[in-house]
C-alpha cells in the first residue's frame, strides 16, 4: 500500500468511527447473542451425543485404527495421497513440506496481499485462494470421515500360503497392519502404501525386520513384537505378489 493509500484509509476510517456507534452496547449486544447461542449449542450437543469411554491403552497389542479427531482428517488424507508414490513425492511432502508451506502462507498473508482494495469482486486472486483452500480442506475432511476403518480380520485374499506365510499373515492381521495398508483390495487404502505387490521389491528378511523395527515416520515401530513374529511377518510381506498372490 502506498503512503497516500494509507492516509486515505486512515482518514476514511476516522470518519466511519466519528459517524459510528459506541462498542458498548451496540456490538456487545450482538456478540452476546451469538456467543450465548453457541454455548447453548455445545451443551445440547454434549447432552444429545454423549461422550464414551474407549478401550484402555495397550501398547503391546497394536490392533488399532490410528484415527485422529475430525479436524486433523485433512492431514491424515494428505498422508494417504503421498504414501503410494514414494519416488516422486515422498511422504515428507505430506508430513513436512505441504503443512509448513500452508502455515507460513497463512501467517504472512497480509504481507503478500498489500493492495488497498477490500471489495470482494475486485480481489479475484484472494477469493480464488480461499475458495480453493477451503474446498480442499472440506474435500479431504469428507474423505477422511468416509474412509473405511478396514482392519482385515477374516483373512486376506492371498493364495499360495505355506506355513511361514500363514503365520506371517496372522501376525499382520493381529497387529492391525490392515488399518494403514491394503493387501489385494482388503484393508485401509492408507496412510501406508498398498502392499499387494511388495515382494517385487526384492527385500531380504534382515532388511524387512530392520524396517519394521525402525520404519520411516509416520509408521510406528514394531520393535516390541517377539522375534519369531517379526520373522514371520517379514517373510509374509516380502513374499506378497511373488510367492503369495
Amino acid at each position: 500500500m502506498k503512503p497516500a493509500d494509507k492516509k486515505a484509509y486512515d482518514r476514511d476510517y476516522a470518519l466511519a468511527k466519528k459517524t459510528g456507534k459506541p462498542f458498548f452496547p451496540y456490538a456487545i449486544f450482538k456478540d452476546t447473542i451469538v456467543a450465548g447461542l453457541t454455548i447453548v449449542g455445545i451443551i445440547v450437543l454434549a447432552i444429545v451425543v454423549q461422550v464414551e469411554v474407549g478401550e484402555p491403552v495397550n501398547p503391546a497389542t497394536t490392533d488399532f485404527v490410528p484415527r485422529p479427531e475430525w479436524y486433523f482428517y485433512f492431514a491424515f488424507e494428505l498422508l494417504k495421497i503421498f504414501a503410494n508414490q514414494d519416488v516422486l513425492t515422498p511422504v515428507i511432502m505430506a508430513t513436512f513440506m505441504v503443512p509448513n508451506i500452508m502455515i507460513i502462507l497463512l501467517v504472512v498473508w497480509p504481507f503478500i496481499d498489500r493492495g488497498p482494495e477490500r471489495r470482494i469482486w475486485k480481489r479475484p486472486f484472494a477469493m480464488g485462494m480461499i475458495v480453493i483452500v477451503t474446498g480442499m480442506l472440506c474435500y479431504l475432511t469428507y474423505l477422511g470421515a468416509n474412509s473405511p476403518a478396514g482392519v482385515a480380520s477374516q483373512g486376506l485374499p492371498v493364495g499360495g500360503l505355506d506355513e511361514a506365510g500363514t503365520a506371517g499373515m496372522q501376525v499382520f492381521m493381529n497387529n492391525g497392519c490392515g488399518s494403514c495398508h491394503m493387501v489385494a483390495g482388503v484393508g485401509a487404502p492408507g496412510p501406508g502404501p498398498d502392499l499387494t505387490n511388495f515382494g517385487s521389491k526384492g527385500w531380504d528378511e534382515a532388511k524387512q525386520i530392520a524396517w519394521l523395527k525402525a520404519p520411516n515416520p509416520p509408521m510406528p515401530s514394531y520393535a516390541s513384537l517377539p522375534p519369531a513374529d517379526l520373522e514371520a511377518l517379514a517373510t509374509f510381506v516380502n513374499g506378497l505378489g511373488t510367492k503369495y498372490k
Binding site: V53, G54, E55, P56, V57, N58, P59, T62, D63, F64, V65, P66, R67, P68, E69, Y71, F72, A75, L79, V91, I92, T95, F96, P191, N216, P217, P218, M219, P220
Partner: peptide
C-alpha cells in the same frame, strides 16, 4: 490444544493416533 488433549483420555484410539502424530513431527528434517 486439540492434538495434546486427544491423548489424555488414554484409550487405544487416542494413543495410536498420537503415536502417529508425534512420528509426523519427528519426521521433519
Amino acid at each position: 490444544m486439540g492434538l495434546t488433549g486427544y491423548l489424555l483420555v488414554w484409550d487405544q484410539k487416542a494413543y495410536w493416533a498420537t503415536v502417529v502424530a508425534v512420528n509426523i513431527f519427528a519426521s521433519a528434517p
